[in-house]
Design a protein around this nucleic acid. Structure first.
Lengths: 205, 205
DNA sequence: GTCTATACTACGATAGAC
DNA sequence: GTCTATCGTAGTATAGAC
């Protein structure tokens, strides 16, 4: 189906080049369809851009659902349980940030974070929101000594340690003296993230 | 001088729109010069793009120099001194990430991290490298229990907590329920970053 | 639903006057 | 050093055949 093929290509082009930088001609050519098919299916360049955001949100939602469902279903009766779940969620996020297939999603989202358009709203409501809410809820239980705003910021900081793996990927590689992150590098990064998060979350109230 | 005015405009346009998305016509118009002036001064679009990277690197270097010079000059004779300096450097980075004027530098750099070109090399050698090396050196002294690679990753993770303030700015605002970060928000973010970093760095060997 | 053909605008580069 | 003028290419959108 052309519809899906165009969307898949769009993630790459809009991610790599941004809305202004990507061209519908190129996207059409790479999808092996006529340019006017984009108009037919998505109404134009802007429609395609927004449909791409929905597509990305759906993929993230599907990918994170198993882990987030587990947290939602869990009975959390103590800091230890909350910490354990939080470490699992963070590790899942880190694994996602390290995974090759998220490269273009990430580019698209990071662009939207810098200069949000309507597409950001779709990403946020469609995927980011649930991840953020879960982290915030777990941090509140793991660190009952923090007030609401302090807890939210702590959730952000924990997330930042995973996000850096995508947002500054090239610098991460430079610092580790490699051209891309192999299995051992990835294990090291995830292990350290886990260790740091555990330390921060275990801080005595 | 037209040269400097064009560069200043370029940071904004290349940052916001990327290399492909920005147009030399628009940059020229916004700089109040003829488009051919860009060819004269920078040789063309690509030359301007690279000159913009150098311009950004210079600004970051100047901005971070006082703090990094202080670290380089300091006699560090114990974990406590290293931790104290590290907290100061991280706070300086966080303050930079929160500052409005770094918005377009950050966009430019984040783009280059996703798909590095020759411009990344100029940014890295011209500015990022010294910041990274300083962090790594201080972490090594603050956490002598970690091996070289673990220390490097820890430096990355600490940096990530500051970087998130730019790379996911819009999400940070959403989570704090605000449309932009006021003084109180910024103080809260910097205070939490400091607290988290201190906890991680003080971990008993 | 997918194509070709076309209209119109904007792009980067360059030549040449001042 | 800065400008105007112009060339060739590539952009989005749309009309209309199949």
């Amino acid at each position: 189906m052309a519809h899906a093929r165009i969307l898949e290509t769009s993630v790459h082009f809009f991610g790599r080049l941004g809305f202004e930088g990507a061209s519908t001609r190129e996207i059409a050519r790479a999808s092996d369809v006529a340019m006017s098919s984009i108009t037919y299916h998505f109404g134009g360049k802007e429609g395609l851009y927004l449909a791409t955001a929905d597509h990305i949100a759906t993929q993230i939602r599907e990918r994170t659902a198993p882990l987030l469902d587990r947290v939602a279903a869990a009975e959390i009766n103590g800091r230890e349980t909350a910490i354990e779940l939080l470490l699992a969620v963070l590790d899942g996020i880190a694994e996602m940030m390290l995974s090759a297939e998220t490269e273009y999603w990430a580019c698209y989202i990071i662009r939207e974070q810098q200069e949000p358009t309507e597409a950001f709203e779709r990403l946020y409501q469609g995927a980011i929101r649930r991840v953020a809410d879960t982290l915030i809820r777990l941090v509140a239980m793991a660190r009952p000594d923090l007030d609401d705003r302090q807890g939210r910021v702590t959730a952000i900081m924990l997330f930042g340690q995973a996000m850096i793996l995508r947002s500054s990927r090239t610098t991460v590689c430079r610092v580790l003296g490699t051209s891309d992150l192999d299995e051992a590098d990835q294990a090291l990064l995830r292990e350290r993230l886990r260790a740091n998060a555990l330390t921060v979350l275990s801080e005595a109230p």
